[in-house]
Design a protein around this nucleic acid. Sequence first.
DNA 1: CTGTTAGCGCATTCAA
DNA 2: TTGAATGCGCTAACAG
Lengths: 361, 361
Amino acid sequence: MSTGSSTGSGAGEGALPRRATISDVAREAGTGKTSISRYLNGELAALSPDLRARIEAAIQRLDYRPNQMARGLKRGRNRLLGLLLADLANPYSVEVLQGVEAACHALGYMPLICHAANEIDMERRYLQLLTTYRVEGVIVNALGVPESMLKPMASGGIPAVLVDRTVDGLDADMVGLDNAAAARLGVEHLLEHGYDDLVFVVQPFEQVSSRREREAAFRAFAQGTQGAQGVQNVRATTHVLDLHEDASIDASLAALDAHIADAARRGARCALFAANAPVALRLALHLKACFGAQWQQHAALIAIDDPEWAALAGITTIRQPTREIGYRAVEFLHERIEGVALATRAAAFPGELIVRASTLG
Amino acid sequence: MSTGSSTGSGAGEGALPRRATISDVAREAGTGKTSISRYLNGELAALSPDLRARIEAAIQRLDYRPNQMARGLKRGRNRLLGLLLADLANPYSVEVLQGVEAACHALGYMPLICHAANEIDMERRYLQLLTTYRVEGVIVNALGVPESMLKPMASGGIPAVLVDRTVDGLDADMVGLDNAAAARLGVEHLLEHGYDDLVFVVQPFEQVSSRREREAAFRAFAQGTQGAQGVQNVRATTHVLDLHEDASIDASLAALDAHIADAARRGARCALFAANAPVALRLALHLKACFGAQWQQHAALIAIDDPEWAALAGITTIRQPTREIGYRAVEFLHERIEGVALATRAAAFPGELIVRASTLG
DNA sequence: CTGTTAGCGCATTCAA
DNA sequence: TTGAATGCGCTAACAG
């Protein structure tokens, strides 16, 4: 809009494109760099009131900001934490991120957020980059193979904590959902409501520990409860849906349709159990395409994760305490950075069942 | 799970917690630091094949990674770009972020992502922090007042580009949606489909340029089209909904309900026009609470932004080319960093109308 | 082609 | 209480 000229407020020096350094401040205050440094680091006890005032004034006048890079270089710690996220489009990641930010905030770290966008190359590249920026620790929600992270991090002595999923060869601190309990929560809810044909829908899960655990727990509980709950002959099957593979996705959905149709024919009550939000969304979209706006009447749906739109679509979910997960991850990391060398720990948070219309058919 | 001991692969030195430096590499390769530096910076022409090989070997052996901090300190540029996002829970932000990442990737920058989480203090703090880390430029999707950013950035000579919203006193490059055209697209669609009572629902918009522009355009087009399109007597009103103010939100929604009820009584066809996705979600949730699953039959809804769940809920939207917006922002910034000192520019991208059930009632 | 020298901005000995 | 000197890891003049 405006193309006018406007220069800063306060002490306008024009716009010299060079920030003041500690030396500038020292000169301006008529003292040595050491005192400035002391002031910056809060060693106020060792400064005469007069000098201190002069320093404050000088800093103000020059709008001085200490260079974190130089600082980090000298002290060997730069207060940077790497946060590697597999997929920011997944609300889960964003929520974990919020917890991480809160904790970083409280503990004096700056999170360096890296988004792998489901690309394994990205993941590897970012891990290298983080090494290069000498982050003091990394929080990893990985997609990839072990070697991709073992090498750069462990070999550099950079502590890591895993979120939601473990990495094969590596034993590091780990924090996430109590998958077994969550799966059980879902299964029990479905059984209580009379569903007897349960289909667990999950992305390819061999590589991702949380998916593996959820699937295993789903099967264990669905089959182990045979005859209990007053429900006889419960069917429990697992369906793989690869969201990033356009080729296979249609076939997989078609198979699912067949399953649903068959259940209807048999008079069975079929319920879909989505392993996470992205799967749930894909399923809901598909069901809507098949059955129209009233799809809820044709197939029940429950999901782990509780994205905002779940309430709108009326989908029963198992919510994860995502903020806490992120927060705890930073706490773990912080302890390791501070040198506490305990055995590797794991924190598994419980999920919370939120009942909505999609399982009350 | 496992608490076993596992040490790295390759050349296992145990786990000395100190990374190799350029000096280490020089010693290992039996040469001076300069040659290493040259190798790192791709000045391969100035290295004998022999030396070059020795360097490569040494780097390999030590698993050496140049320290970006030290590098940046020396050269005065660290390849860091600040990205300040008002709200990552808004899918818009995530999508812009993806564009930013892609561009950073291509241009050799590392984005330093900061999330203000709708808190104005956060915004200010992060802006200071970015200054402190000496980022070479910032991309800002701001919520705050002008002074909060004018001071740290402009005074530090750090170029900035604004996304989606301008900042009052500041004239910087700017990229976002063509708000006027987008609003027009929506209004025309509604009029074509016979809606004659249009309500624009928007968060408090005095402070945010994009909201202001959308609202203004909405009014201009809705009223300017009087009598055209075969529609007579179109009503166009604006409704403010403060999503972050629990106190006022209920009252605002109640007023909206009254408006809708009144329209029904008059036999008018009422349509809600949400200024962005968060507003749309809130509206949809409310309508669902009021009218049940069949809310679509009671009130039409259209929104700017096209989040994933819009398809599921069947909501007509105007999609922004978010990736492009993010990408272009980085390009603008890059040019400024490279010293091109043109007049400030603005890029306004067109939106795309996506018709769904919510406006076909 | 290669190595030596001198800082980048800062924190930290060590003296004064 | 204060300041001068040293070096973090790296790049950029300069010489050889």
